[in-house]
């Protein structure tokens, strides 16, 4: 253990050029499948956003950008946009914080570690409808468990109708999503910790750094690429995730939990205005694109995007 390895290796650079076209073969099967199953439907949907289209009628009329203009001048949709932003930021922030803490905890040595690791991950594997129904029961404002416990402890006198008031409905949904999402970050970050070469830490220790310092200075930066990609994808998924709203609040009370995907679902399947619905989804995709591009720029600045650069 005299020469610690580092990730900043330049030796491989020259040989990389040599591989030529064969490198595309590695990528091709995955690319074909993604383009066929996801890419094509997205393009189709975006094209439909330029039409007035009732899915029950076969005809459609080209209307240009009218759907976009109409949707953007609808105050309910603007409300949905700001709700979506709050929803995404709130959910992902708490998941990252607690997920990171969770990964550190699960990495410790303790009795019954295998079982506890398995148990803490269970919320992640809970189908949305089940999670929604159980939490709805727990959070209920009349016979709910949470209120019962809080009242028994004496923290509150009257039960709080968590999902029935505009001030707490969104937070309640976030609670459910955070519950489901913490294990995702914990697992991904736990895995990221494992692939960090141990001698890096050794090196840090030789420098006399404390354990916590070693974690933040050496382990954390190496986890950063994984943290960033898991986070950006979680942002994208959370923006589109509407199962909880559909079961628990249907976007209410008074639009306080209406997000873009839910609004576009209603527009498509109950109002039968499919073109407007896809326009809403198109706007959401554009906003996400902006977020992702900014994020990727940040990542490449930190060297997380490409190995050794």
């Amino acid at each position: 253990m005299n020469e610690p390895l580092t990730v900043h290796v330049k030796a491989g650079e020259k040989k990389r050029k040599r591989t030529g076209l064969s490198k595309y073969l590695y990528l091709l099967p995955a690319a074909l499948l993604i383009v066929g199953v996801i890419g094509y439907p997205i393009v189709r949907a975006l094209i439909l956003s330029l039409y007035a289209y009732n899915p029950l009628n076969s005809g459609k009329t080209f209307v240009g950008l009218k759907n976009y203009v109409g949707v953007l001048s609808d105050s309910t949709f603007l409300k949905a946009m700001s709700n979506t932003a709050i929803w995404v930021v709130g959910c992902v922030f708490f998941q990252v914080v607690f997920g990171l803490l969770g990964a550190v905890l699960l990495n410790q040595n303790f009795r019954g570690r295998g079982v506890i690791r398995g148990l803490t991950l269970i919320p992640w594997a809970t189908p949305s409808v089940l999670a929604a129904m159980m939490w709805m029961w727990i959070l209920d404002g009349n016979y709910g468990l949470l209120n019962d416990i809080l009242m028994r402890i004496g923290l509150i006198v009257h039960p709080i109708p968590w999902i029935s008031q505009t001030g707490t409905a969104m937070a309640s949904l976030m609670l459910i999503d955070v519950w489901q999402g913490i294990p995702y970050f914990a697992v991904m970050l736990l895995a990221a910790m494992q692939t960090i070469p141990g001698d890096l830490l050794e090196a840090a220790k030789l420098d006399g750094a404390g354990a916590w310092k070693a974690f933040w200075k050496v382990v954390f930066p190496l986890m950063l690429p994984t943290l960033m990609i898991t986070t950006i994808l979680r942002i994208v998924w959370t923006a589109s995730y509407m199962d909880l709203m559909m079961v628990v609040t249907q976007g209410g009370p008074a639009y306080s939990t209406l997000t873009i995907p839910l609004a576009s679902y209603y527009r498509a399947y109950t109002d039968l205005k499919y073109g407007e619905a896809t326009a809403m989804a198109g706007i959401q995709a554009l906003l996400l694109l902006i977020v992702v591009v900014l994020y990727l720029r940040l990542m490449s600045n930190k060297g997380a995007l490409d190995n050794g650069k």
Binding site: M133, W137, D140, G141, N142, Y143, P161, S164, Q165, G252
Partner: peptide
């Protein structure tokens, strides 16, 4: 009505009625 009326669906309705709330 219960303060939760605004969001009560079928599941909450039957539950509350069974509970006697």
């Amino acid at each position: 009505t219960p303060p939760t009326a605004v969001s009560d669906g079928f599941a909450q309705l039957t539950a509350g009625f069974q509970a006697g709330t």
